[in-house]
Design a protein around this nucleic acid. Sequence first.
DNA 1: TCATATTACATAGCATGCTATTTATATGGA
DNA 2: TCCATATAAATAGCATGCTATGTAATATGA
Lengths: 145, 145
Amino acid sequence: MDIASFDKASSAGFLANMMARLFENRLAAAIRPLGLTPAQFMTLLELWAEEGQTQAALVARLAVEQATMAGTLGRMERDGLIERRPHPSDKRAQTLHLTERARALEALATEAAQAVNARALAGLTPEEQALFLDLMARVIGRLGK
Amino acid sequence: MDIASFDKASSAGFLANMMARLFENRLAAAIRPLGLTPAQFMTLLELWAEEGQTQAALVARLAVEQATMAGTLGRMERDGLIERRPHPSDKRAQTLHLTERARALEALATEAAQAVNARALAGLTPEEQALFLDLMARVIGRLGK
DNA sequence: TCATATTACATAGCATGCTATTTATATGGA
DNA sequence: TCCATATAAATAGCATGCTATGTAATATGA
């Protein structure tokens, strides 16, 4: 009967984990020359789109825990990518601003990330690529409850 | 022109990361009552299939770095899931063996993991599920170079 | 208005993953 | 046999992610 059988090669969770680790490793290698890490890049994407956001706003947009974002922002400040300024109306909060260094990295970093995505999907037809993104979005929606 | 535009909602890497974190969080919650973590579960899958493997064998099968596996095995030994025995013919190596506690967890743990997978894929037709696994495997193959 | 609840953020502790280094043992060839 | 190289593990250091807590400030409602 093999009641407890579990084939990791056909486990969605196992494949998702392996795929995500590969994506992260490739992205890390691609942006390391820029002095960036994957979490920093993800955070910069939000700040390139709109500067002056609070930590809480980034937490909501990137769907990581607040403590995780606090750690990433601390390393970004340490590395000269962002500055924190007091929030104009809420003494609990701070607004987050890019340094010149961070602004200058936008084009190179996004191109590097797009290259990783392109390489990952290179074996799929355009229709398959679109379907793949759609399927991932649907699984995310389901797991997000 | 928006040369540097990057829409994370349509980035395969971003979606893969989010999906994998959700899978891992759900699995962690599901097996936490058993006293297991995701990496421990993944390692147990290999040892349930074949006891007495070396660390190097697990590294090859699970595609994590040797240092990562060493850490996971250390925590598993600490938690009473595995024992290390001297390798019969190679003094550098050790063989890894399950404790009774670990053997007793196989059915419950695999059922919990299968439930997470089933829930994640519940919104997909059987054809879409098969296609999804195939697409992930192909992307993994491509990223693995 | 004042007590209570909520919110923003920091911090501690831990698991997982990676790179790099070190130590001990095996192995292959000169 | 001996040396150079390869292999098995351990360890250190760091990034990311999570849970759980603590603190200060704000919002809410009786």
